[in-house]
């Protein structure tokens, strides 16, 4: 039971403690995000998709529904210009969402997408989406927010309807904090 042996044990254990603390930040958080992206779970959609030239599968039609809602006390007007589009897999589609800021102050919003069924998330490719960026709107201003997407041909055959929902968050305060 020399003091040296004890110090060695303690040193090893301290390394474990520091490593486990770091593990949370450098492994668990990134791994969670990577897994959600790769498996398309949680209904999270991926980032910008580079369109490729592909055959349009005209034998199938998929119904894409759009839902827009405001988080908590978010006061903006926010709705899709059309509620439903029928698309063929492989086809590039365009639509817009309508947003308006009724307040007397300039605000910043962030739209967060979610897809049902979650399984379809990996096959819903966006080439352009307002959700990739924050949306600043001046007091009383309105805007058309563009969305372009392609439903992948590999979409499982049993999925006939995809619902894309956007929740609009007020991020004015946190943008101010970061600046």
């Amino acid at each position: 039971m020399s003091d040296k042996a004890i110090s060695r044990t303690v040193a090893k254990l301290l390394v474990v403690v520091v490593a486990m603390f770091a593990f949370v930040f450098v492994v668990m958080v990134p791994l969670y995000n990577v897994l959600c992206d790769a498996l398309g779970i949680n209904g999270k959609t991926g980032g910008r998709y580079e369109a490729e030239r592909v055959e349009v599968d005209t034998t199938r039609t998929v119904k894409v529904q759009f839902v827009a809602r405001n988080n908590e006390a978010m006061s903006w007007g926010f709705k899709p210009s059309v509620k439903v589009i029928r698309v063929h897999p492989g086809e590039l589609e365009k639509t817009v969402f309508l947003a308006s800021n009724p307040e007397q102050v300039d605000m910043v919003a962030q739209a967060i997408p979610s897809i049902v069924p979650a399984r379809a998330a990996a096959y819903f490719n966006k080439t352009e989406c307002f959700c990739f960026n924050r949306q600043p709107l001046k007091a009383g201003e309105a805007a058309e927010l563009p969305l372009q997407f392609i439903v992948d041909q590999a979409l499982p055959k049993d999925i006939h309807t995809i619902t894309l929902s956007y929740t609009l968050f007020d991020v004015t305060d946190s943008v101010a904090v970061m600046n």
Binding site: V18, V24, M28
Partner: peptide, 10 residues
Amino acid sequence: VAVMPVLAGA
């Protein structure tokens, strides 16, 4: 030793 640092991280 293994999990209290995880709680601290959370």
